[in-house]
């Protein structure tokens, strides 16, 4: 089996993984017929989705996602607050899982996508493989940020006693939307933007037209 770095004019179809010849605009996959848009489109779409997600991250973390009613009144729990409560209660493993899935993963995704988007603008041709792996990493772990929302769903569905009740908090809506937009941003990102030279060539042309 011979291995070679993929020539820049070949692309993998995001839908069916078939190898296609990249003609720039209006590529139609030879196998599944999917329209593969120009990476320029992906660049702006990813920025828009990512910025939306980053803005939503603020209310998602500031507002409580959980409210616990007991006979003594109620307490509000933010995402980070929930991790601290778990840690203090001695559930170190679960606290770590939640910390990684709902606090670190979204931040990691923001940083990686920002890095990928910004580096696609500059001629940093090296570390292409590293950047590719970073992208696959955030694609795989991304969905796990939803854990917190599902935990809240399960808790509020189970604990509906008169003396002890758990309900979702105002931050939950922002949190769902934040995870949705980060996932959408990762999907919208076109790995061709990692294949550096491609974008710089196009962006020069585009900027002379006043687009880029």
């Amino acid at each position: 089996m011979s291995s070679e770095p993929a020539p820049s004019h070949l692309i993998r179809c995001p839908v069916c993984e078939a190898v296609n010849v990249d003609t720039g605009d209006n590529v139609r996959c030879r196998r599944c017929g999917t329209h593969i848009p120009h990476p320029r489109e992906s660049y702006y779409r990813t920025w828009a989705l990512l910025l939306t997600a980053m803005i939503l991250w603020i209310p998602a973390n500031l507002f409580p996602i959980l409210r616990i009613h007991t006979i003594m009144g109620y307490t509000d729990n933010t995402v980070v607050g929930g991790v601290i409560t778990l840690w203090d209660g001695g559930s170190y493993l679960i606290a770590l899982v939640i910390l990684i899935a709902s606090v670190l993963v979204p931040i990691l995704k923001f940083i990686v996508l920002l890095y990928l988007l910004i580096s696609s603008r500059f001629p940093v041709r090296h570390r292409r493989h590293v950047r590719h792996r970073l992208y696959t990493l955030i694609e795989i772990i991304g969905a796990w940020s939803m854990v917190d929302i599902f935990v809240v769903t399960a808790l509020s569905g189970m604990v509906t006693f008169d003396s002890f009740q758990i309900v979702a908090g105002t931050g939950a809506t922002a949190y769902v939307l934040m995870v949705f937009f980060t996932l959408a941003a990762a999907i919208a990102f076109d790995p061709r933007l990692i294949a550096q030279h491609y974008h710089t060539q196009k962006s020069k042309k585009a900027s002379s037209n006043g687009i880029g």
Binding site: M1, A6, L10, R12, A18, V19, P191, I194
Partner: peptide, 19 residues
Amino acid sequence: QDDLSKYVMCDRCNSLYRK
């Protein structure tokens, strides 16, 4: 086009291989 189906691209690092 026919030749292209003999190739596969790694989804993690984008290396090209002949099947």
